[in-house]
Simulated scan of single mutants.
Amino acid sequence: MKVSDILRVKGGTLYVVKPDDSLTQAMATMAEKDMGSLVVVEGGAVVGMLTFREVIKDVVRHNGQVAQVTVRDAMEKQPLLCTVDTEMDEVRRMMLERHARYMPVMDGSMLMGVVSFYDVAKAVVEEQSFENQLLKAYIRDWPQAENATDNAAG
């Protein structure tokens, strides 16, 4: 399974923020849209990632006074990136190694979406469920008569 498979199911809604936007406005967008992350874009390029983890760290760092803080001050400046062709096993490995919960998906220089750890876990569970159904169907269709004859002869 590839990242493109997840994006196809997930849909195309994508929210971004600029590095010079206020952290307060970014937090309001995240709360309003019930999102855990925003991709930070400048000049058409991905320059960072803002997640609730960075927001919380910056709120604590500034004792709750974030009115003058920009997204640039809080964002992860070197986020993990993947492509639409990246295999899910690779995305899982990358996310686990970096403790990342969100990963922007690129197609060349174009931002295609974001996959979350939840999206990855859901895809894995659905894939395993499908494989289990196939295995159960295969086992149900196992030729019982031949198997019983073979066991009796041996």
Rank of each mutant, 00 (worst) to 15 (best):
Y102G: 00
V16R: 01
V16D: 00
L50M: 09
V47I: 14
D141A: 12
N147M: 09
A26V: 06
G154V: 10
V41L: 00
G12E: 15
T24C: 07
A153N: 08
V115D: 00
E87L: 07
T13M: 10
E42A: 11
R72P: 01
R72F: 05
V71K: 00
V39D: 00
N63D: 14
D58G: 02
G64N: 11
P79Y: 06
P104F: 00
D34A: 12
F52D: 15
E76H: 07
V55E: 01
S129W: 07
A145P: 03
T149P: 01
V16W: 00
V125W: 09
R101A: 03
D107T: 06
V60R: 15
K18M: 13
K57A: 11
G154E: 09
L80C: 02
D119P: 12
E76M: 09
G113I: 03
L50Y: 04
G64L: 09
Y15K: 08
Q133H: 03
S4H: 06
K136T: 14
D89M: 12
V114D: 00
P143G: 09
T29C: 04
A100D: 05
S22A: 08
A100Q: 04
Q68V: 06
T149L: 14
R8T: 12
I6K: 01
R101E: 06
L7M: 08
L23T: 05
E131M: 12
G12Q: 14
I56L: 15
V9Q: 06
Q78I: 10
R140T: 11
V71W: 02
P104C: 01
E54C: 10
E54T: 10
H99T: 05
Y102I: 00
H99F: 05
L7P: 06
D5W: 01
R61V: 04
V40A: 02
V84C: 13
S109G: 13
V114C: 04
P143Y: 13
E54Y: 11
E131W: 08
